[in-house]
């Protein structure tokens, strides 16, 4: 992990922004923080690799638009998006736009630190991820055809009702598949299930 990496926190909530900055500094990171995406884009860019931790729902410019700008600018920045509770479809979209990872608020600080470290230490991260991904691919292979269809629907950000309609089964049956999926994929939440699936190359 490059020693001098800059972590940029973008969140319109001041208490979150300041406390997170303190937490990351305590963990030994160089930290910058901005109250809006525009303020960050206006600031002179830092040299070298870095990681942006941004809230997804913000006034003026939201996290998704910021992600698009960063990716199109060609800057060497990893982006981790912070989503609200139940913002699964937004998280899926962010991953498709090239976000390194997403984390659902409220989160455990250790989880975020692990994510940041993984994103910055690309080589290590990718190898670790590959190992994890390989394992996930195996898990996905163990799914039945129907479970796989339901998983695809969930990754596409569709509701139980929509998936049921697509597959011509009742929403209640979708719920059963979904519960079995979670158990098989060893996921504790829907967002984790989707994260695992996307990282394994499902989208």
């Amino acid at each position: 992990m490059p020693a001098n990496s800059l972590i940029t926190i973008i969140d319109d909530d001041e208490s979150m922004r300041k406390s997170l900055a303190f937490r990351l500094r305590a963990a030994g990171f160089r930290v910058a923080s901005y109250g809006s995406a525009l303020a960050f884009l206006d600031a002179p860019p830092d040299i070298g690799e870095g990681c942006v931790v941004t809230d997804i729902r913000m006034p003026q410019m939201d996290g998704m638009e910021l992600l698009r700008r960063i990716k199109s600018s060609g800057r060497n920045l990893h982006v981790i998006v912070m989503t609200g509770h139940g913002d699964v479809s937004l998280a899926v979209e962010a991953m498709k736009l090239g976000a390194s990872d997403f984390i659902e608020k409220p989160f455990d600080d250790e989880t975020l630190l692990t994510m940041i470290r993984a994103a910055l230490n690309s080589a290590e991260a990718s190898s670790r991820r590959d190992g994890k991904a390989l394992e996930t691919v195996e898990l996905i292979r163990s799914l039945t055809a129907r479970e796989r269809e339901v998983l695809d629907g969930l990754v596409a950000g569709r509701s139980n009702k929509d998936i049921g309609r697509d597959l011509d089964i009742s929403p209640r049956t979708v719920e059963i598949y979904r519960a079995n999926l979670m158990r098989k994929m060893r996921a504790t939440s829907l967002s984790e299930l989707i994260r695992i699936a996307i990282k394994a190359g499902l989208s």
Binding site: M16, S19, L20, F22, A26, K105
Partner: peptide, 15 residues
């Protein structure tokens, strides 16, 4: 939000 902030401060201090 404030609870998460307090958590961040506490964990930061601990580290």
């Amino acid at each position: 939000q404030p609870l998460a902030a307090v958590g961040n401060y506490l964990n930061g201090c601990r580290q």
